[in-house]
Design a binder for these strands. Sequence first.
DNA 1: TGCCGCAATGTTAGCGGTAACGTTTTCGGA
DNA 2: TCCGAAAACGTTACCGCTAACATTGCGGCA
Lengths: 335, 335
Amino acid sequence: MPRRSSGRVTLQDIAERVGVSKVTVSRCLREPQRVSETVRLRIEEAIEVLDYIPNRQAGALSSGRSLSVALLVPSISNSVFSEVQRGVDEGLREAGYQVLMGHTGYSILEEERLIDTFLAYGVDGFVLSSTRHTDYAQRLLNRARLPVVETMELTDNPLDINVGLDQRVAGRAIGETLIAAGYRRIGFCGARLDYRVQQRLAGWEDALKAAGLSTQRCQTTPRPSSYRLGGELLSAMLERWPDMDAVFCCNDDLAAGALFECQRRRLDVPGQLALAGFNGLDITDATWPTLTTVITPRRAIGEQAARLIVERLQGAPRNPSRHDMGFEIALRQST
Amino acid sequence: MPRRSSGRVTLQDIAERVGVSKVTVSRCLREPQRVSETVRLRIEEAIEVLDYIPNRQAGALSSGRSLSVALLVPSISNSVFSEVQRGVDEGLREAGYQVLMGHTGYSILEEERLIDTFLAYGVDGFVLSSTRHTDYAQRLLNRARLPVVETMELTDNPLDINVGLDQRVAGRAIGETLIAAGYRRIGFCGARLDYRVQQRLAGWEDALKAAGLSTQRCQTTPRPSSYRLGGELLSAMLERWPDMDAVFCCNDDLAAGALFECQRRRLDVPGQLALAGFNGLDITDATWPTLTTVITPRRAIGEQAARLIVERLQGAPRNPSRHDMGFEIALRQST
DNA sequence: TGCCGCAATGTTAGCGGTAACGTTTTCGGA
DNA sequence: TCCGAAAACGTTACCGCTAACATTGCGGCA
């Protein structure tokens, strides 16, 4: 007689119904080929009839493996990360892992809190979407000895595995693209200056400096990026630098917002002003004119992260590595 | 000597260091006021020093409560649900619960799979983003006797708690708005005809029929909604019904895509064609012209869902209920 | 002085699984 | 016919935590 039973169907219930011990039932679920055909069929029937759902918590507690991996993204509403998520999810699900998602709101403190929480849930690995973390978070991750993938940007000192692209090189590439297209008075607008945006800005400066152009037309704000903000920033820039002939927006949201503002002002794009974005979201290929942008391999990053984590979970040794997934420039109508 | 220790710091380690039993440490974490000041301080210090992270799986297994709630949304890339998620997350976190998210890809079979998975993880409740489920999923949910909130749309037969808005009434309202603005040859375009979209369509028909107008200008597709698809659908409609003077798009993505297509065709909005969307995403307030739309209280839905779940988790009796959160029409430049 | 009540802490027995190892059964080949 | 190894299944002892109950110690009061 159980002291406090949850009312849930357990392995024991299945075992009793079939007339075997619960280890046999457990084995039947994990290594079916090690159980005789007859018993297996009867166990499967009992599971079906009783609607048995295994208790993962108990399994995880006992085996030390939860078959789940945490994926931390800055923002769920930012569609940039939904592609990464898709890649991660697909790859991990195939290998039998469940992805648990958390969002940090672009705060490394919140990231720290989530790492703590997910460690408490016993996840078997982490996919992070940045290379910047609090000291405490790094300590926790190191101590836990779990596979950790830092994604999106590249770093020289990965915690473990690093999969991303060189944001600075990409920023430079888009700058050079604008220069090659003949623009000379090129601006930059950026919102929420996280590390990645700073890198893009640095790349933009690299390109302009290398061509002997002025880098003064730079408008930034710590506010979170949005379509409307793109319009506001562009307005501010047009006022300060009326001669500007092109703008590199640190992401596609700002670029689209800037485009809408141009339409509002009846400013011809690209005739009077060229626009470029970053990431290659769907919208860049739908607006009129379509937007030139840097297409980042977000899906591939997610898939690669999943692949590497699974490798490690299946026994591959810890071996810090960096994977540059590259990028692609999409030359569109806006330049 | 443990047979297989995980290397992790446990309650026992804290207890030994402080010189008390592990129950005392456990109590100190859950009901600090029941432990003497002296002991509490020493326990807290030990936790700090040893970087103790409680094992939630063990706790959940023992107590029967996991302090987590599953939130299932159709799509993570659809920003409609990110607001719901924010509301749910905020409300539940305050009450000490962790939200675990899953996405169903608009498939009730996938939803069923996720319900199974999250039950295996021992979640204490569910927030679903639809009222349609497989029979098996309903059976699982009923049997588990957990609080369940079905969100977004309303139903007459809630599984448990229902928080949403009447999609049909909202569809009718936008139809009436267009009619009141003087439009007479009003079209409807819809993608991925899930239950909610069907309801909006029915509402649109209600409005047109009530005004004695034709409901023939209706273009739909099962393909998933996107900006580009909005453009394609609009093109097809303009070809079939050149005289159309307004279109209600079943969501904002389609509406924005349709707007871009109008710009491409140099069709004046709203002069030659009026456009309306659904949901009230950020973009509707950023484009030029801005888009008329139905603003759905997604954040409020999430918050209310969280509130009701917490109530139930804190002991309120099961009491099937329906909460109509209403909607608001935003009249903008596109009509 | 003796007894009661309460605050503070301890003991015991699980929660539902799984690892490791032990036992029984089966069966082919010497 | 008998042996031995592999296949099939069982026993035991936990994983780390908590509910329920037991115990201890101390102050207050009759």
